[in-house]
Design a protein around this nucleic acid. Structure first.
Length: 491
RNA sequence: CGGGGUGUAGCGUAGCCUGGUAUCGCGCCACAUUUGGGAUGUGGAGGUCGUAGGUUCGAAUCCUGCCACCCCGACCA
């Protein structure tokens, strides 16, 4: 395979890019900023989707689908929303090609110009709220709790595999409520769903919080978020949940009649996570040997590698390997038996480490003799010889242990990388030398936030939920502050 | 979009300064021997040198435009 080895500690960026390609997750396409998600990477995304989707349904949501194209006039109805997205919109202006009679080349037919341009959705609030107008008359029509799985396009200047691509896959929830309280409750509920998913499935600890005004979603009154910390000490926004107030209801004239027979504007939320989570997953756990997948997301949880020399050994070993395969499969474990005989065991070991398979079981003639197998775990690289009779009850337990261990490791890393500081010098020192989150006082103004960003390249990642209230002084201006906020350099 | 860098076979590369039809490793195909940590031998296949022009008898090499990617900014999920 001749993998170019780049150490994580030497060049994090190159390590990340290599890992994404070498582990067969994705590759660059010939379309600028757009990636091809390969089968193995897509299998992981599908597992994420399945986990999230069942959580959405458990919390009362249904899936629906809205158009990829949004008429420009819809898009421009909510002022701050346009401001936020205008710079990164792909626009469809024509609907037909033709052969140029002079050059014989295929060109855009100038006669096929659209009356009204269509925006390729960067997010779907506008078209959905334009639709909700027709769906909502009475308080009895509320709430509407919808989610859609979709692709969206944001024409970013600089892209990175999974973390920021021109087109990306995501889910976007769009809910409509009769009261502000109910909408806020929904916003927070979905943030909890995201946090639960991130920690228990991705094994990535997250900090739940609220964005500062500067970092707020275009059109939102409040943006809640989960923030993760990557192994290079940079923060990553992993999901957002927005309380949109009545902004979109007003822009699209969506009203309902209350019990009291009064006409009221509807309250909105939206929330989303994207294929960026793949980036979070990769950057949180992986090492110089490759990907490290938490068992709950691994497309292959256990791989069985048979080892044999001659045909009689092969027959003997394969018989056992096959039996173990079915034994584990019966327990609902996703298991693969790699019986390719043109590759050496050593090659396979390295390859499955690169792909992040949590547990590897090797079985050779010696094991058949002794009724044992060699069990190796990806997270710690530990190997043990296990009695074959123990496989059935020990493997599920081991997978669970690995899931917990990966999470704990990430949690320990994060704990070591939250620094509390009270002065500008300490602040800069923490960012430059210690990396990670920096908890510091801030006077609450956007000017100060911008100034800090300019001077340090760090942004306010969030104001943590249930934040301790304490009086202090802003690290930049010295103005009074009543709580600390979390700063970090971020993706 | 601004600054810097890179682009040669599926992957990683040498050659470029000083122009003469492309080097090596991995992978791929065939056969044989192998298989408990990335096997070995022999024989093979694979390249419009990112792309479009220009200079030249002749361009991977020199010049120009364009494209893609990487790093650093600005923007962002």
């Amino acid at each position: 395979m001749d993998i170019k080895k780049v150490k994580r500690s030497e060049d994090y960026s190159a390590w990340y890019n290599n890992l994404v390609k070498n582990a067969d997750l994705a590759e660059h396409s010939d379309v600028k900023g757009c990636m091809i998600i390969k089968p193995y990477g897509y299998a992981i995304w599908e597992k994420m989707q399945a986990e999230l989707d069942s959580r959405f349904k458990e919390t009362g949501h249904s899936n629906a689908y809205f158009p990829l194209f949004i008429p420009k006039s819809f898009f421009t109805k909510e002022a701050s929303h346009v401001d936020g997205f205008a710079k990164e919109c792909a626009v469809v202006t024509h609907y037909r090609l033709k052969v140029d009679p002079d050059t014989k080349e295929i060109i855009v037919d100038p006669d096929a110009k659209l009356e009204e341009e269509l925006i390729v959705r960067p997010t779907s609030e506008t078209i959905i709220w334009n639709t909700y107008r027709n769906w909502i008359q009475s308080y009895r029509d509320l709430p509407i709790l919808l989610n859609q799985w979709a692709n969206v396009v944001r024409w970013e200047m600089r892209t990175r595999l999974f973390l920021r691509t021109t087109e990306f896959l995501w889910q976007e929830g769009h809910t409509a409520h009769a009261t502000a309280e109910e909408a806020i409750e929904e916003t927070r509920k979905m943030l909890e769903v995201y946090a639960d998913f991130a920690e228990n499935i991705l094994a990535v600890p997250v900090i739940k919080g609220v964005k500062s005004a500067n970092e707020r979603f275009a059109g939102a009154l409040d943006t809640y978020c989960i923030e993760g910390l990557m192994q290079d000490g940079k923060a990553l926004q992993m999901g957002t949940s927005h309380f949109l107030g009545q902004n979109f209801a007003k822009a699209f004239d969506v009203k309902y009649v209350s019990k009291e027979n009064k006409s009221e504007y509807v309250w909105a939320t939206s929330w989303g996570v994207s294929t960026r989570l793949m980036g979070a997953l990769i950057m949180s756990h992986s090492d110089d040997e490759g990907l490290v997948l938490p068992p709950r997301l691994a497309p292959i949880q256990v791989v069985i590698v048979p080892i044999f020399r001659k045909d009689d050994e092969k027959t003997m070993v394969m018989e056992k390997a096959d039996a173990y395969y079915h034994l584990l499969k019966k327990q609902g474990i996703s298991v693969k038996l790699d019986d390719r005989d043109n590759l050496s065991p050593g090659y396979k070991f390295a390859d499955y480490e690169l792909k992040g398979v949590p547990v590897r079981i090797a079985i050779g003639p010696r094991d058949v003799q002794n009724q044992t197998v060699e069990v190796a775990r990806r997270d710690t690289k530990e190997k043990q010889v296990m009695s074959a009779a123990d496989l059935e009850h020990k493997i599920p337990h081991l997978l669970e242990q690995i899931q917990q261990n990966i999470y704990q490791k990430a949690l320990d890393y994060r704990s070591e990388h939250i620094h509390t500081v009270d002065s500008w010098d300490e602040f800069m020192d923490a960012l430059e030398n210690k990396t990670g989150f920096v908890s510091a006082h801030w006077d609450g103004s956007s000017e100060t936030e911008n100034k800090i960003k300019e001077l340090s390249k760090a942004t306010i990642r969030c104001i943590p939920l249930n934040n301790i209230q304490e009086s202090g002084k802003c690290i930049l201006t010295g103005n009074p502050s009543h709580e600390r906020v979390l700063f970090a350099r971020a993706y």
